[in-house]
Nucleic acid binder design. Structure first.
Lengths: 179, 179
DNA sequence: ACTCTAAAGCAAAGACGTAGCTTCTAAGTG
DNA sequence: CACTTAGAAGCTACGTCTTTGCTTTAGAGT
């Protein structure tokens, strides 16, 4: 049972913060559970008990970092909004740190719930764009179509075919979808 | 330098075999490098040197298992061929072992070459189907289109949205592409 | 205030990962 | 057919990480 205002929450926050700090300081590959524990001021066994291993901890932190921090920009029409969002999404996700976070999120995650959360974030952002279009009276596809025709192809390339990506790919996918 | 007929090749084979056997016997989570080494009759340091860690070893083995073992079935026309291939692909990849292999292949792979290999396997199979269609004189899409419109959406769901999949999804994607 | 329980601390034992050095083996050469 | 050589495997010792049982703490509910 998680007690929101209590010690558990403090520990979780301290550990997450320690991971982010150390990731920046010593690099991902040098991270170890004892190192994180020392920085967070907890004992290693606490981390092992709560997260089971370093992978799952990194996965948790990665999901946090993949959460969008702002609503998609409003450029006045669906095509522009979607194009801008897709370009930014691709740009962030295809970057080396972006790819690392995606891999971490997928990795320590037997049941896929962390990865599912990432997908939900993207779907939510797209949902906002589509809802705005609907309010304007524009004809808009549904979220599922955007996932299948825009997000999925971008993700596939990011994960399976690195080095075959640029912003024009995002624009082409959006254009094809809206055609 | 790898010497195909020599000791290196024997060791690599013994280690891969040991991984597959132990995976079946004790389960993935109980695999460790020393355990694999003992079964393969080599010392742990050999594995650490060649593969660096367990993840990369599992990644190598996973790629091997994801290699298709036969050419796609010929059902006489493009739509049927592609539909059959997509259904089988989805079925294999969405299964628990299939997902585990995909994750392993993605995982121990900083530069994405193992994952790229998996993608290449799928592209090759699709290429065979499309080439047959071209020989028959059918109008066929190119491989890139199939990747974007069929493979990528299936993979995205497998990785990010488990539990939202069935064979009809594969059929729908193929039908939409060929429409 | 008191009780109760989930979570954290502690400590010791065992397993794992790393690195230096030695030994082997197969490919190339005269 | 020896001989050389370099890459790869074996061995070993050390340090670090992981696991586990038990104890202690702190916050939620009464």
């Amino acid at each position: 049972m998680v007690r929101p205002g209590g010690r558990s929450a403090r520990v979780q926050h301290a550990v997450h913060t320690a991971v982010r700090e150390l990731e920046a300081e010593v690099g991902r590959d040098a991270l170890t559970v004892p190192l994180v524990a020392a920085r967070a001021g907890v004992t290693p066994s606490t981390i092992y008990r709560r997260w089971r291993d370093l992978q799952q901890l990194l996965s948790d932190v990665a999901v946090e970092r993949l959460r969008p921090d702002a609503a998609p920009e409003d450029r006045g029409d669906l095509a522009s909004d979607l194009e801008a969002w897709a370009e930014q999404f691709l740009d962030e996700m295809a970057s080396p740190p972006g790819r690392a976070y995606i891999r971490d999120a997928l990795l320590g995650d037997p049941d896929g719930s962390n990865a599912g959360q990432c997908s939900a974030y993207a779907a939510e952002q797209v949902g906002v764009v589509l809802a705005r279009a609907a309010e304007r009276g524009e004809k808009a596809p549904d979220v599922e179509s955007v996932i299948d025709h825009v997000i999925a192809p971008m993700m596939y390339r990011i994960l399976f075919r690195p080095g075959r990506l640029d912003a024009s790919y995002a624009r082409r996918l959006v254009a094809d979808l809206l055609a």
